[in-house]
Design a protein around this nucleic acid. Structure first.
Lengths: 184, 184
DNA sequence: ACACCTCTTGCAACTCGTTGCATAGGTCCC
DNA sequence: GGGACCTATGCAACGAGTTGCAAGAGGTGT
């Protein structure tokens, strides 16, 4: 399981409540690991029971109290252990690829429309990531340590979106060419 | 859910038993959608109950009987419906990216070793896919229809592996450079 | 006073996927 | 005949993740 470790990473950067974490998983960390708020609350409870984090109730003005979580020494130890452990291969799982392979059993034109929609989605995501890259890392050459790590993960996101765009373009081009040939 | 649809696609290509399907999910289809045999048997039962497939017990010589499944008209209809339906965005989920981002909270050298191991894995996969590409599609230019679909999905696999290789190489290079600088 | 909004935490039920095991028929070999 | 192994199907239990809903606390509007 990696959600508890993703939470440990996020809490290592800064202590947070369940809702704070939920918001972080909606942006930065969420770009490469997603989680719903229910999942986060449930996991936080288990982690506290296991002694990886401890919580403190903090009163707020004009808002309900919140429970702020913090990583314990045991949590830091677990994080280090997990970091060094081999990562199991995550098999590729793409609904889109299943559909592309199945296109001849349905309406091909609609599948091409799906491809065009996905292409637009991935172009938007690429623009988002490149915007963050230019805003937060205008000069990547001098980076080191934690900042370099964050930059390189973002680069992974950029490259991933570029992959989708390139492949979907190849897909659409090839089918456009095949279709044109049929018409002649 | 896409497993039932992946099964419909595979059964559309050719009728099969649960174990046949398990073997297909270990190779061709499995390159972009995986499933264990228990999952397949369970899903086949449900699909038969829903009327998407029908089964026939076939006696074999020297082996236990097998139940061969076949797509019904309702199954073909469902497949067509699913093909045209929009595909929800699948958020990226990469344990490796979480680890890379967290490297400063553990032993960085071990994380670099993980990256090198992943790089080797993806090089192997790329070689596998490129081997299939050259064996099955030596002349991709004339392809159309179902063969073109299969070729293009394979191209997606090749490009995906190439993405991992390129990014991991960038990651290792950047950290090698940062480390060298520290030493000076 | 009352309805209604947001913030924060959480429960319950469900689906999806994995792991471990069971069963039953059959071959091959010693 | 006994044991190892393969084919084929399946159950049970668990863990991970999603969806829907609830409840309390505090604010705002009329």
């Amino acid at each position: 399981m990696a959600l508890e470790h993703a939470i440990l990473v996020s809490l290592s950067e800064r202590a947070a409540s369940g809702l704070d974490l939920t918001r972080r998983f909606d942006k930065s960390i969420g770009y490469f690991w997603t989680a719903s708020h229910q999942q986060i609350y449930r996991t936080l409870s288990r982690m506290e029971k296991d002694g990886w984090v401890r919580s403190e109730v903090v009163a707020q003005q004009g808002r309900p109290d919140k429970k702020v979580y913090d990583v314990t020494a045991a949590g830091r130890e677990e994080l280090g252990r997990w970091l060094a452990a081999p990562t199991p291969a995550q098999p590729l799982r793409s609904e889109l690829m299943v559909k592309f392979r199945a296109a001849s059993y349905g309406d091909r034109e609609q599948v091409l429309d799906l491809a065009r929609a996905k292409l637009a989605e991935h172009r938007d995501l690429l623009a988002l990531y490149e915007g963050i890259e230019q805003r937060d890392f205008p000069k990547p050459d001098g980076l080191a340590g934690r900042e370099l790590d964050m930059y390189l993960v973002l680069r992974g996101g950029v490259r991933m979106e570029q992959f989708w765009i390139d492949w979907l373009t190849e897909y659409l081009d090839a089918h456009t060419r095949a279709h044109t040939k049929d018409e002649r």
